[in-house]
């Protein structure tokens, strides 16, 4: 940030001083709320109220148009005990989270460590690795669908080059989720890399040098010094990747062209919710899915926060 001395703000303040009377603390308090009003109005109207209201809608059978019919908790009973597809969607979502979060974090940390040196061209590397993240998911999924095409796709060609037989990818119930996971790693790893890089830059180099002087190798310096000091960043990346992965929607939609894939093998919670609400117009049932989805996120985030206090090291 620029220091103020270069700007004529001081004189600006003096000029302003002559024109206005001082404000009382009460007025300042009132002003605080005024400043918050535009943001809070939108957040309350389109985030808080809908989040509460969705609990209400989940108790009804409703097609968005006619009269809602009160069902009590029957949507939830059906969802949790009878609905095979929902169970599948929960399982696939967990599969996606487990497939993307640890691998994505390891990959981005590795790239960040590699980039964290006085390296000519470092800024360019960082920007290029980040670039998939700004590209639209729809447009890039279109390309990746061809990469994963079982007959003429690049992925199988690559596997064949290493004497590995190709698989069915987007046409196979077993391989469509791995395909979507690989795509997603490609899409967001650069983002996490940038955050890890910032965390690494924040660690005083003297600490690592001291470990080096004491005879620690690069490997043990990383695990004994860098890794603990990096833990707040690691936690932040874990937090945003978990929430991001649970919400996965657009790539599932586009990879399966709105169907959920062969044998609904790519059905995730967010996608199932969308289908129930906007393809089958079951507003009540979709709201029940929303409620369960919300509770899952709250539990996972809560567990993460509790667990974090044990291993996140704050200086």
């Amino acid at each position: 940030m620029e220091p103020l001395s270069s700007v004529s703000d001081r004189s600006l303040l003096r000029t302003a001083a002559r024109s206005g009377p001082g404000r009382s603390a009460v007025a300042a308090g009132w002003q605080g709320y005024a400043f918050l009003t535009p943001a809070l109005f939108i957040l309350v109207a389109f985030l808080l109220i809908p989040t509460i209201w969705v609990f209400g809608i989940s108790l009804f059978k409703w097609d968005f148009i006619g009269d809602p019919e009160f069902l009590g908790l029957r949507n939830f009973v059906r969802l949790l005990t009878e609905d095979e597809l929902f169970r599948k969607a929960v399982f696939q979502t967990l599969y996606f989270v487990v497939g993307t979060v640890p691998t994505g974090m390891a990959l981005s940390l590795l790239l960040a460590v590699l980039l964290n040196a006085r390296l000519p061209g470092r800024g360019l590397f960082r920007a290029l690795l980040f670039s998939p993240y700004v590209m639209p998911v729809i447009a890039t999924t279109v390309i990746w669908q061809w990469i994963f095409n079982p007959d003429y796709g690049v992925m199988n060609a690559l596997l064949n080059a290493f004497q590995i037989p190709g698989v069915g990818w987007v046409r196979s119930a077993d391989w469509i989720m791995p395909a979507i996971i690989i795509y997603s790693l490609w899409h967001f790893t650069g983002y996490n890399t940038v955050i890890f890089l910032a965390g690494l830059a924040n660690i005083p180099p003297e600490l690592e040098e001291a470990a080096h002087v004491d005879g620690a190798g690069a490997w043990s310096t990383f695990w004994k010094v860098t890794w603990p000091l990096l833990s707040p960043t690691t936690y932040f990346v874990l937090f945003i990747s978990m929430i991001g992965s649970f919400k996965v929607f657009v790539q599932v939609y586009q990879f399966t062209l709105g169907t959920g894939g062969p044998d609904r093998a790519a059905e995730t919670i967010g996608f199932y919710l969308y289908q129930e609400a906007f393809q089958h117009f079951r507003a009540g049932y979709a709201s029940a899915i929303s409620v369960i989805f919300f509770l899952i996120i709250v539990v996972v985030t809560g567990a993460q926060m509790r667990f974090a206090s044990r291993w996140v090291f704050y200086r």
């Binding site: 009132w30 605080g32 809608i57 919400k247 709201s287």
Partner: peptide, 27 residues
Amino acid sequence: MSFPGKALIFACVLGMYMVPQEVTLVP
């Protein structure tokens, strides 16, 4: 700025970050 309830409102705003867009689609 300082005003009553600032910390609480800020915590609530951050807490809302947890709500995925999908949850609020229907309402």
